[in-house]
Write a protein that binds this DNA or RNA. Sequence first.
RNA 1: GGGCGAUUAGCUCAGCUGGUUAGAGCGUCUGACUUACAUUCAGAAGGUCAGGGGUUCAAGUCCUCUAUCGCCCACCA
Length: 885
Amino acid sequence: MLDEIPKQYNPKDTEDKWYKFWEENNLFSAKVNPGKKPYTIVIPPPNVTGILHMGHALNNTIQDILIRYQRMKGLEALWMPGTDHAGIATQNVVEKTIAKEGLKRQDLGREKFIERVWAWKKQYGSTIIRQLKKLGASCDWERERFTMDKEYSEAVKDAFVVLWEKGLIYQDDKIINWCPRCQTALSDEEAPHRELQSNLYYLKYPFKDNPDGFIVVATTRPETMLGDTAVAVNPKDKRYKKLVGKTLILPLVNREIKIITDVVVDMKFGTGAVKVTPSHDPNDYALGKKHRLGFINVIAPDGKMNKNAGDYKDMDRFEAREVILEDLKEKRLLEKVEPHSLSAGHCYRCHTIIEPYLSRQWFVRMESLAKPAIEAVKKGRIKFHPARWAKVYLNWMENIRDWCISRQIWWGHRIPIWYCLDCKNAAMASAEKPVKCIKCGSTDIKQDEDVLDTWFSSWLWPFATFKNKEDRQYFYPTSSLVTAPEIIFFWVARMIMAGLEFQNDIPFKDVYIHGTVRDVEGKKMSKSLGNIIDPLEIINEYGADALRYSLIAITAQGQDVYLSKERFEQGRNFANKIWNASRFILMNLENAGQSPSGTVPARTDLCVFFKKEELNLANRWILSRFYSTLKGVGKNLERYQFNEAASLLYGFFWHEFCDWYLEIIKADIQNPHNQMVMYKILEKSLRAMHPFMPFITEELWQRLFHEGNSIMVQSWPHLQEDIIDLRSEKIMSEVLEIITGIRNMRLELDILPHADNIAAKVFTANKHKREVLENFSGQIKSLARLKQLTILSEYKRVSGEFASVVKDTHIVIPLSGVIDLKKHKEKITTKIKKAEAEINTKEKMLGDKNFLKRAPGEIVEKEKEKLKNLKEQIQKLKGVYDALK
RNA sequence: GGGCGAUUAGCUCAGCUGGUUAGAGCGUCUGACUUACAUUCAGAAGGUCAGGGGUUCAAGUCCUCUAUCGCCCACCA
C-alpha cells in the first residue's frame, strides 16, 4: 500500500481523470437529486472571446462551492452554464482575424461577415468552457446556452416587443457616447470615465465690430471650436454685461456667432465665458436646443474631422487639436494654456477616448422599470452580500437614465424594428418580419440596420436560459447570483428589472458580490499592465484544488484580493497535507485489517453506537472539535463567508487532526477506537472539503472505498451524526466485544472543557514523543480519566526531565533546551505583574453594582471564574519564582 | 462634488450580532531527518488594533471628528 500511494500529491494524475468520470456519469445534472427543492445558479456568462483569468477563477470557484455544497445537502442543484455573444468584443476579434487577410467587414458584407463570426465561434468559442472544466466547475453542461441561440434570440425579440408595446422604447437624437474606433454608440455604463492629464486652453474670439477686442473662452477640447455656434456667459456676470448680444468672429472659420446668456454658466470656471458647441457636448446640446442655436458637426464617426472642418478635414481629432492650437497661436488668439485634469469617457472594449456625438439612437425608458426593482431590494426580497452594495445599487437605480440600446455593429441581435419604405416614418416592432405595413399595407419593408446592446440580451439570462416553460417555472427564480462589483449596473440591476418586468418575479434571492482580483500592488490585473497571474498556469503548477483553496482562503467577504503567486503554495501544501494524512490512515487501516485480502473498510452496513464515555479523551476531543468545525463550515457557507469556512477546515484538519490527533494515536494506532475515529473523521472531512477541493477529495474517496461511487453525490456530513459506523469485521471484531453491552446508546458529543484540550496536547511532546509515550502511556491513560488536567507552562523549561506528574493534576513536559534563568525570572515577574493588574481590574469590575446589574449572568460567572483562575495562576507563578531561587 | 472601502505582527490579511489571554499565512530566530508528509514537525520573538473625542459594566468591534491610501459614481466647458 505504501508503495502504491506516492509521497506527494500530483494533481495531474487525478484532475482530468475525475472530471471525465463526473461528466460521463452525468453527475453535474440537477437530476442527481430529482424532485428535491431546486437550488439554481446561473453563471455570469463569460464572453465567447474570453480566456479564463483570476476573476473568473474566483467567481466560478465560489459558485462551484455553493453548487457542490447544496448538491451534497440533497437539493436539486443546477448550475446553468453558457456564454455571451459579446457583440463588440467578438466583432473586434473577428475583424482582427480578417484583417490578416487584408479584409474589412465591409468588404465581406453583413451576411458573410456574420458567417465568419459563427465560424470563429465554432472554432474558438468554447475555450473558456474548457478552462472552466479545468477548474472543476460542476455545471450542467447539457444545458449550456449561448446568448445567440435560436430560442434565446426569440426571447430577446419578445422582450423588445413587449417594451415597445408598453411605449418604453423610443428613438431620439441625443448626444451619446461614441467610440470612434469601434464606430458605434455605447451606453453610459460602457463608457467609464477616467482621469486624464490635459490642458485648459484659453482662446480669444474677436468682436465683429472691433477686431482688436476679444472675449476669452476656456476649453479642454479646442478642436471642437470649429463647430461653435455661440459663446455663453452668466447673466449675473458683471464682467460681460455690456458684451451680451455682441457678435463675434469665430477664428479660423470666420463664422459669426453671438454672445448669449444662460444661468448654467459657472462664473468661477475659466473666464466665465464658455464656447458653445451643440453638436459635440451634452451641455452645449441642451443650450443649443434652448437658444435655438445652430448644430454644426465637425467630427466624423471615425474620429476624423469632417468637411465642416474646412482645412482640417480628414485630420484625426487629436491631430487637428494640435494644428488648430498652432494656427491660433500664430494668429495670437491663444491667450494661455493651463494644465488641467479632467475625466473623459473611454470605450470599455478598446479604451479609445469617447467622442460625445450627436446621433439618432434607440433608447429604453428606464424609470418605470426601475421602480419595482428598487422596491424588491428595499423590501429585502433580494439581498446583497455584503449588504453595502445595496446602497450602490439603489443610488444608481434612483438616478437611472435612459438606456441607449442600439449599436452600429453587425454581430448581435438585430433590432426587431421594421420600416415601411413606402410611407416613411412608420416603424413597427415585431419579432418576425411583418407581412405588410400596418399603415399603408405596403410590403416593401426593411429591418433596422442596428443591433441591440449585448446587455439587452444578458439581462434576460436568469430566465431566457431555460428553454421550456416547465424548467423555467421550476428553477426560476434562481437562488444566488455570484458576481463582481463591476457589473452591478451593467447586469445585476438590469436582470432585476427584466425579471420583474418579463417574469413578474425577482431573478434571484441573494446577490453575492465578491472582490476584484488585483496584483500585489493593488492594480487590477490586465493584459496591458502585464501583471497577470494566469490561473491555468497555477493549475498546471500547483493543481486546481490548490488554486481554488488559496483563492477562497484569501477572499474575505467582498474585499478585493491582492494576489501574488506565492499565495498558491498554501493551497498546494494543504492538498499535500490531506494527501499524506490519508495515505497514513489508509496504510494503517490496512495493516490493522488483518484480512487476507487486505481491503480497507468500506462504509455502512455495520452501525455501532458508542457512549461518549467509552472513547478515550483524545477521541472525544477530536470528535467534538470536528463537529464544531462542521457546524462552523456550514454556517459560514450559508452566510457567504467562504474564507471563514475554508480556514476552519484547514485549521481543523491540519493543526488539530493531523498535528495533534494523529500524533496522539500513533502510539496506539491498532486500537479499534482509534481506528474507527480516525477513519470516520477522514471520511467525513473529505466530504466536507469536497466543495472546496473537488479533485483530491474524489481521488482519496475512491482510494478509500474502491466502490466507483462518487464523493460528489455523497451527503454533506450531518451535523449531529452521532452514529459511528464501520463495516470491516476484521478491524472491528475487537471493538464489537467491547461495545456489545452498550450498543444502542447514543454518543452525545459536546465540546470538551478547555483543560481536556490541553491534556490532549500533553500526550505528544513531539521532541521526545517516543520516550514520552513509552514512559508515560500508563500515566496518560490514567490522567485522561481525570476531570481536571492542566499544564503548568512555567515548569516546562525548568524541569530537567521529560515529563513528570506534579502534584495530582499537573503534568509537566519539557519542550526544548536550556533557558536563561535570569531572563526567565524577569519574565515571570512581568507576568505576575500583569496578572496582578488584571486581578485588580476584575475585582473592581465584580465589585461594580452596575456590572452586576447589567451584565448577563453568564458573563458575570465567566468573569468570576477568570478571576479565580488568575489567582491560581499567580500562586503558581509565585511558586515557580520561588523554586528558581 | 457625492458615495463606499481600507488603516490590526516585519509583509499580506482574518477577526460575523460589542464579552476568555486579538488570530492565520508568509517571513525571522531556535530546535528536530519522529515507522504520513521537509510542500514536514516542535517552539520563540514580534501588536498603546492610524490618531483624537464619545457611548458602555465592557470597544479592534458602536457613534463622531481628523489624517493617509484606494475604489466607484457625476453632463467641472
